[in-house]
Amino acid sequence: MVTDFTRRKLLRTALGAMTVVPAAGLLSACSMGKTTQPPKLIGCSRTPAGAYSVVVASQDGQPIYQFALPGRGHGIAIQPNGTLAAAFSRRPGQYLQVFDYQSGQEWPIRAAAPERHYYGHGVFSADGNYLYATEGVKTSSEGVIGVYDIKAGMAKVAEFTGFGIGPHEVVLADEHTLAIGVGGVHTQGRKPLNLDSMQPALVYLDVQTGGVLERVELEDKRLSIRHLSVTDTGEIACGQQYRGEPEQAAPLVALHRRGQPLRHLQADDEQWLRFNHYVASIASVDGYLLATSPRGNCYGIWHEASMELVEIRPLVDASGVGVIDGEWLVGSGSGKVLTITPPKQVRAYQSPVMWDNHWNVLPS
């Protein structure tokens, strides 16, 4: 199994000869890249010196502009039918940053309340007027969905609670429904405190009232549901983090259709162990699903209908995945960017950006 230590060693080796675009001053004006290509990708990034930023880049990962963040970022939300984006700090996060991804203009940073933290993800409403953020109560890890009014300057207008502890990613299952990956883990900082009593679940909430519409759980309570994606057939794909014994294998990707149980994608134990108990980003194209594992330094591709694994390929610090014109774009912390035509035709590029776990494709 590839350990986090090995991952960091591989990443340092891959970055040794690279030139990384420096971050701008703290929340200063955007620094411009040299490419003349149109913006297609947006994600959080890191530098070897320990700085963090948001980067807007071309389709092959070349930076167009970037601005600094006050700490490590994680997920990005993109406003439908608008030009805003929101960057969320890595859990337990202390800020979220809204900005215009076309102009680079930043809104005032939104700090977490003293008794709260952000969990790293959020999503805009279908009309783009509200931002939903996963949050938690520091003392209990009680899950909260903070509802922010964009037209009111990011005023917090509601909170949805009562759906579980340790939520992570939230997506729009449809324009009326939020889907939340509830990890079920109570933490102090990043230290887990309740591994023997975890209650992970995939939960659906009404976007207007916050009422629970459906809750579905996996049989193995050590499978913490973390990351979500809506597939091209309308199912919710769930990426898990296994919190059990290090030598034990567990299925790390599942699919769910409303009113049915969660269904695991298939792989052998040895193949699941390649992912080092963690799946980050997920996206589907034309009946195939791709999931990355930065901890496992690899990505996997499955055929959705048969649930069978097509292949696993190595990629140092495999991170974000998105879809453009029927192809996957996969990033990595080493700066490598892959364009993959399903099921497994690959073209590779080198970017000067150390991409973090997630990125988004910008609308055309």
Score class of each variant (00 low, 15 high):
131 L>A: 04
215 R>D: 00
249 A>C: 06
215 R>V: 02
73 G>R: 02
91 R>D: 04
18 M>A: 10
300 G>V: 06
193 L>P: 05
306 S>G: 00
79 Q>K: 05
293 S>G: 07
106 E>N: 05
288 Y>G: 01
128 G>M: 07
155 A>W: 14
268 D>N: 15
190 R>T: 13
327 E>A: 13
29 A>C: 08
315 L>R: 05
291 A>L: 07
28 S>H: 08
205 L>W: 00
243 R>V: 12
55 V>A: 08
228 L>D: 02
55 V>R: 07
237 A>I: 05
60 D>T: 12
249 A>D: 04
161 T>W: 07
26 L>K: 13
274 R>V: 13
301 I>Q: 02
354 M>K: 07
129 N>A: 15
12 R>D: 02
39 P>V: 11
238 C>Q: 03
5 F>S: 14
39 P>I: 12
208 Q>N: 14
191 K>G: 10
344 K>T: 14
177 T>S: 01
25 G>S: 15
323 V>D: 08
34 K>P: 12
39 P>R: 11
261 P>T: 10
179 A>F: 01
144 V>F: 15
114 P>K: 05
349 Y>R: 05
179 A>W: 00
307 M>K: 15
231 T>E: 04
48 P>K: 04
136 G>M: 09
14 A>F: 08
140 S>I: 12
311 E>N: 14
361 V>F: 11
355 W>I: 07
25 G>Q: 13
155 A>T: 14
67 F>C: 00
169 E>L: 09
64 I>D: 00
30 C>R: 10
156 K>Y: 12
41 L>V: 08
206 D>E: 06
208 Q>S: 13
47 T>S: 01
338 L>P: 05
70 P>E: 07
152 A>L: 15
105 Q>C: 09
354 M>Y: 03
351 S>D: 02
166 G>W: 03
138 K>N: 15
53 S>F: 13
41 L>K: 05
332 S>T: 11
323 V>G: 08
177 T>G: 03
13 T>Q: 08
93 G>F: 06
258 R>K: 13
34 K>W: 14
154 M>S: 15
170 V>G: 00
86 A>F: 12
277 H>A: 06
267 A>M: 10
